[in-house]
């Protein structure tokens, strides 16, 4: 539908503003990706999510 921003576009735009946090989170998973368990990188993810939520609200 023209003129309507799809939720995924808003999501992508907000996520793009947090590349630094995203890369830190990715590095944390990558450090030992053969042994990933639940909440292995919780602190990094929470930072990423915080940044994302802030960016999403600003839109």
């Amino acid at each position: 539908m023209p003129g309507r921003t799809r939720p995924i576009d808003k999501f992508a735009a907000a996520a793009a503003k947090c590349s630094k946090e995203g890369s830190q989170y990715g590095k944390c998973i990558m450090a030992d990706y053969n042994n990933v368990y639940k909440d292995k990188c919780l602190t990094e993810f929470l930072k990423l999510k915080e940044c994302y939520l802030a960016a999403y609200k600003r839109q």
Binding site: A15, S19, E21, G22, S23, Y25, G26, I29, M30, F45, L48, K49, Y52
Partner: peptide, 8 residues
């Protein structure tokens, strides 16, 4: 959100 960071 997590998959985007990991993919990159």
């Amino acid at each position: 959100l997590a998959a985007e960071g990991i993919y990159r």
